[in-house]
Simulated assay, not measured.
Amino acid sequence: MSRAGKSKAITDAARLTGPEKAAVVMLALGEDHTRIWESLDDEEIKEISQAMASLGTVAASVVEELLVEFVSGMSASGAIMGSFEQTQRLLSSFMPPEKVDNLMEEIRGPAGRTMWDKLGNVNEAVLANYLKNEYPQTVAVVLSKIKSDHAARVLTCLPEDFALECVQRMLRMEPVQRDILDKIEQTLRVEFMSNLARTSKRDSHELMADIFNNFDRQTEGRFIAALEERNREAAERIRALMFVFEDLSKLDPGGVQTLLRAVEKDQLGLALKGASDALREMFFSNMSERAAKIMREDMDGMGPVRLKDVDQAQMAMVQVAKDLAAKGEIMLAGAGGDDELIY
């Protein structure tokens, strides 16, 4: 498990790695010294960020030993806490949001508070493919720490002779020393979890649906029509995965109001110029009477508008909606069905 999951604070500076020591210093400096980050290259930022995210609590004596002159500027307890939230907040102060999100996703890996929780959310074939190159004793430790049903599926995916050897090691296994367990966790984090996000492949139809979502209306129609002639099944699957402007009609009232607060008013008016009457009224009904009246007047005052401009405004609104959904602030039903969710 990560250091954050331990009950005791880190009390020995000698046990910290170089990146972990750097992470302690950066956390102590806080958000007012973000220019230091700007002098680091991407690999250095990534290495320190990974150490920071799994650091946990660091005792005051360790912080004082590493950076005495900054002790007085720390919290009353003299301790600092390294966490995903603190790491993300610091990175966000100087890195673009998209870059921060990608980095944090890579650091986090599959959902779960501890390393063993995370492994439980990794596909058994993917996990088995990694473990088959490890020592049977290491695999035995890993399988003993994850849930039994998941361990069973992983064993099934391993070569039979190797799986039996792992089973025998598990039967003879004694309690594992803490430092050995820490080393296994660190290896899993560095060699497996950090690479998982980069090596996992997106479904090709999902990727194409995203690309088609960014076409203008005429180009999208042309490509879909041509694809239907050559591969109707692929075209239908892509169409089902696409999320288009009219799908915003599936938002609940709370979601509509959240989206309205996040979208620029001139962009909203332009997008609604090309919307169906039903979708237009849905947005108006979630505004105050005065705001809806002003919006209608603004739209009338636009006069004729180019289809290209309307498409761009609608695509921008869809992107805002997707961003809000990714943050958990609204829920989007996908075009493929009422139960499908887009995050």
Rank of each mutant, 00 (worst) to 15 (best):
V263T: 15
K147P: 13
T219E: 07
M74L: 14
A51L: 05
R108V: 04
P136E: 06
R237Y: 07
A163I: 08
E134I: 08
E191V: 02
G269H: 07
D117V: 12
V139H: 09
E47R: 04
S194A: 01
G274M: 05
E85L: 04
L207Q: 02
A235K: 01
D339C: 11
D300R: 05
E44H: 01
T11E: 15
S276C: 07
L332D: 05
A321Y: 11
I238N: 02
T114C: 11
R178A: 05
F212R: 09
L241M: 15
F223K: 03
E329T: 07
R232Y: 05
R89H: 13
D300Y: 03
Q177L: 11
I184D: 04
I107T: 14
R3Y: 03
L171H: 10
D203L: 11
V318H: 10
A9W: 03
Y135T: 07
H205F: 14
V176A: 01
S144P: 01
E44W: 06
F192T: 01
L171C: 08
L171E: 13
L248H: 00
W116H: 08
S194Y: 00
V68N: 14
I36F: 15
L251S: 13
V100G: 08
D277W: 03
M52K: 02
S61M: 03
L341M: 12
